[in-house]
Every structure is written in structure tokens, then in C-alpha cells.
């Protein structure tokens, strides 16, 4: 137990760092910045996201074409990994964050790039959106409440376990949070492109595979915003005025990985 708590603290610290990184200053997109972003995009992103950002780069025609998820279609202008309410568009920081961190198993992180370059590519990606989704949204208010103040205790994990079943996370993620849903086939979960969701996509016991980040703050974000384009719904309204329960649940999910975390 002690060891596990230690590992959780490390995750929390890393999470904090990532968040502060994201709040870097952003430059106004001038034509030069967008041109620079395009050069970077053409060099490093086209292979997966395609020339027009439709998610139809050559990579889509290899293994990736038959399994969800495909590289995101930027022309839709809606993002899975966001800080905003379900159905809303994104903040520029959201794009910056995912480009920096990548998507484990699907997209490499570009953390090695100078920050400026990452912002330039953000500016370019936004030009690929349909016109009605170019504006910058505000993050959900719960993110402004600040960092969590629910201590990580055995009681908190137990309360989180109860929330897991009360809010029926098991309906999709299974009793053991490994995607172990009886009659999984009949469930027929699909993403927006009609591609099947596999039980491994639903495994919450392996933080290495968490696309939206495995830090406590990241998981809190996933619960609040949901993952647009997939069945994962936003629980922001369910947790409204009970944000503590969300942190208990985050503790429970982290406890499932039994110290196998990043």
C-alpha cells in the first residue's frame, strides 16, 4: 500500500508540471506563423492526419483503418481531449497539450519541439477547421476551482469504488474496469465513424494506455468533459456540487493500476 501511494504522489507532481507547461503564452497568429506551422505540419503530421487534416493520411490505410480511433479529422473542429463542456469546441491550450503529450499508442509526443513551434502548428491546425468552430472556448468551470484538496486515503479509494458502481461506469468499463462487460458483443459500442470500441480501449487498469493522460488531474478532466466522438459521456453535471466524489473516483481508478503506472 505504502509503495502505491508513493507512486501516486509522483503522478500528481508530474500532472502539475504538465498543467503549468500548458499555460504558456501564445502568440497571435500572423500569416508568417501559420506558414511556419504548415511547414511543420507537412513534415510531421500529414502521414497520419492527411493533407487537409481529414485524418486520412497514408497511415489510415495501414492497420489503423479498421480499428478505432483513426487520426483525428481536424476539419470537424471538435476535439476528444479537451477542457471544455461536451459539445463545445476547444481551447488553444487543449491542442497544445495533446501535441506536447501525444496520444499513447497512437500519436508520438512532440514535447521535444521548441514551445514556439508547437504553438505555430496549433495556429495552422485551426485553419483546417470548418469556419464555425475556429473560436477559442472557455474551459469548464470545474477546472477553475483549482487543484484537488481531497487527500488520497484508503477511505477515499473505497468511496471512489462506490461511485464507480453508483454511476455505472461498469456498464461500459466492466466490473473489474478491464472492459470485462458480459455480452460485450451485444453491447456494440462504436465511435462516431462507426468503428468498434474494443474491450482493451475500456481497460482502466493500465495507465500506460490512457490517451488523455494518467495524472489525477487528467483523469478528472476525462470524467468531466467526456471524450467526444466516443461513447464516453461527460459526467460534469452528475458531479456538479459533488466534485469530491469525482476525486474519490480518480483515486479509485489510480489504485487499480497497482503501481504499474508510468
Amino acid at each position: 500500500m505504502l509503495l502505491r501511494f508513493h507512486f501516486l504522489t509522483v503522478i500528481l507532481v508530474i500532472g502539475g508540471l504538465l498543467v503549468s507547461n500548458v499555460h504558456a503564452i501564445q502568440t497571435e497568429p500572423t500569416p508568417e506563423i501559420i506558414a511556419r506551422g504548415k511547414i511543420l505540419y507537412d513534415r510531421s503530421c500529414i502521414f497520419c492526419h492527411g493533407v487537409q487534416g481529414k485524418g486520412d493520411g497514408p497511415a489510415a490505410f495501414f492497420g489503423a483503418s479498421y480499428w478505432a480511433p483513426r487520426a483525428s479529422d481536424f476539419t470537424v473542429g471538435q476535439y476528444k481531449f479537451r477542457s471544455t463542456a461536451s459539445g463545445k469546441s476547444h481551447t488553444d491550450e487543449d491542442l497544445f497539450r495533446i501535441i506536447t503529450n501525444g496520444v499513447p499508442g497512437y500519436m508520438p509526443p512532440f514535447v521535444g519541439w521548441p514551445e514556439e513551434d508547437r504553438w505555430h502548428v496549433v495556429s495552422y491546425v485551426k485553419t483546417l477547421h470548418s469556419t464555425n468552430s475556429r473560436h477559442n472556448e472557455k474551459p469548464l468551470e470545474t477546472f477553475q476551482i483549482g487543484t484537488q484538496n481531497v487527500p488520497l486515503t484508503v477511505e477515499s479509494i473505497e468511496q471512489g469504488r462506490q461511485v464507480y458502481f453508483k454511476f455505472e461506469c461498469d456498464a461500459c468499463h466492466g466490473h473489474n474496469a478491464r472492459g470485462d462487460v458480459p455480452d460485450f458483443e451485444a453491447q456494440d459500442l462504436k465511435d462516431n465513424l462507426g468503428m468498434p470500441i474494443r474491450p482493451t480501449d475500456l481497460d482502466l487498469t493500465n495507465p500506460y494506455s490512457f490517451k488523455n493522460g494518467a495524472a489525477a488531474h487528467d483523469i478528472f478532466g476525462t470524467l468531466m468533459t467526456g471524450l467526444i466522438g466516443t461513447p464516453m459521456p461527460s459526467y460534469a453535471d452528475a458531479f456538479a456540487q459533488h466534485e469530491d466524489d469525482a476525486w474519490h473516483l480518480v483515486h479509485y481508478i489510480l489504485s487499480l493500476s497497482q503501481g504499474s503506472g508510468p
Binding site: D73, V76, G77, Q78, S86, N192, G229, P231, P233, S234
Partner: peptide, 8 residues
Amino acid sequence: KRTFVNVA
């Protein structure tokens, strides 16, 4: 392709 809302 756009989502209006997906809420629990």
C-alpha cells in the same frame, strides 16, 4: 460528424 452533447 459534430457532437451536440454526450452526457451521463
